[in-house]
Design a binder for these strands. Structure first.
Lengths: 266, 266
DNA sequence: CCCGAACTGTAACCGCGGTCACCGACGCGA
DNA sequence: TCGCGTCGGTGACCGCGGTTACAGTTCGGG
């Protein structure tokens, strides 16, 4: 139906949740076909899996875990928005979260896809506001939440963790610079191929293999590459015709990683 | 002449310096008309002015200053490039430096303008490579250089400095997210107006006044907004016709900040 | 003081990709 | 089982802005 997101409605959206017609950036529930997710699925409750805490001792992690209550969100729910800003740090345990912005005329651009075992909302603990950023659950999601106070008590005091935070921010800067130059330099087909490679590579660590499934609708992929849904569909169709991809409702399977990578631009 | 940058020639460029025909991303020398620069000009040799060291004691700053030799570059010189990577931290004392990337077909995108009193090259001390980034002196430039070893000795050990680094990176992430969404959402005229506002605002602190001068050529501004030189010229011309700007060779004077800001997009 | 290089200005062309307007297909919930 | 909502697919149109190709202007250096 291609209804546009209206900033004022945004407020209601939080309450209307799963009620009436969802805005275009709200994906319906998504079921998993692949068993890739299952492997790491269900119970990574322990802190050890989380990047940022990698070099902490047992007892330290316990102390932190005690201070970080868990919370779940249904697919499509907003974890925060410009109208409902939060001053907390999120640790993603299960499911995927998408960070995005909305243009004045209602189009959405996804600036980050957060995968399980990753921290997000790091910006406010570094003095930034992150106005006008939304966070939305792509799947059913479980997070740990850490208050501003606890963040200061446990994290900012510890130099090892500060280093990790800098590392994460550094990676993010590098990624954003790449995406910026890509949207300026590359054509839409190149960007789409590039995005697919990236998603595939980070989904299953190790270079990139044949047959990786990516659980995104064309609309979501479009928001990630900064294009329209229609042209995304067309480009994916062409790649599929050439046997590089297989397409399914809400999922994309990579058949020929090498050629896709080549297609992403020299 | 609009000659394109060739990646292989890039290497020579370092030596050919101010020799033959410079590539398009190499601006000639730039003289200052405004006295705005003069105010902070010439001798900010002391560390105190530098953001990152703001909360250090006298003696600490002396120790650091002793370990950081100064170096100057002529306008147009490259401080580093993908072919000449450096593993050092730069502290910009005087002049402006531009960080940019080059597309496979030779166009340039400026990802950051570094102003005096700011640190750059922060990425490698955070584990990032920053391949494929160039740093070029826009004016005649003086920097302090700190080796990787000294960075670890003096900076990473100190939690106050780590915090500053995170802060800088956080600001950079926020800026890049804004630029990314701008290039996706906004039209070229909007982006140009927005960039002008930003430059004006950061040049002289405080909101933004009438009559600020911005020392950039149309080509440089184009590289900042991710457009072609020609359309930049056209847009600036239109703004000038409407009395919002005055144009001079290599400089742009903002006459009507409010309208420009409005033009930058709702 | 003049020459060449850089910077600015202008115009014609044209292709990528966004927008609009559909329709068919799948799948979930009643 | 049916129906509706979301997703996927397709085509026509058309405007923004990149590209190309010059011409005029300013400045710094020989």
């Amino acid at each position: 139906m291609t209804e546009r997101y209206c900033l004022v409605e945004g407020l209601d959206a939080l309450d209307r949740r799963s009620g009436g017609s969802s805005p275009p950036w709200a994906p319906g529930q998504r079921e998993e076909w692949a068993d890739v997710e299952r492997a790491t699925g269900d119970d990574i409750w322990c802190m050890a899996e989380v990047d940022i805490f990698a070099d902490l001792s047992e007892s330290e992690m316990e102390a932190i875990a005690a201070a970080a209550p868990m919370k779940s969100y249904a697919a499509g729910e907003l974890l925060y928005s410009p109208h409902q800003p939060v001053e907390t740090l999120f640790i993603l345990k299960k499911g995927r979260v998408r960070i995005f912005r909305v243009s004045p005329d209602g189009r959405a651009l996804t600036t980050a896809l957060v995968m399980p075992g990753t921290v997000f909302g790091e910006m406010m603990l570094v003095g930034q506001q992150m106005h006008d950023n939304f966070a939305e659950a792509l799947d059913d999601v479980v997070v740990c939440i850490m208050s501003r106070a606890d963040v200061h008590r446990f994290l900012l005091s510890d130099p090892r963790i500060s280093a990790r935070i800098s590392e994460i921010l550094g990676r993010r800067v590098a990624e954003l610079e790449r995406r910026l130059s890509d949207t300026v330099f590359k054509s839409v087909p190149e960007r789409i191929a590039g995005t697919l490679c990236l998603l595939a590579a980070e989904q299953q660590k190790r270079p990139l293999a044949r047959g990786v499934q990516i659980a995104l609708t064309h609309e979501q992929l479009a928001a990630l590459t900064g294009t329209s849904r229609e042209t995304t569909t067309k480009v994916l169709g062409e790649y599929a015709d050439r046997g590089l991809l297989r397409l399914g409702r809400g999922k994309i399977t990579i058949l020929d990683p090498e050629t896709i990578a080549a297609e992403a631009g020299r």
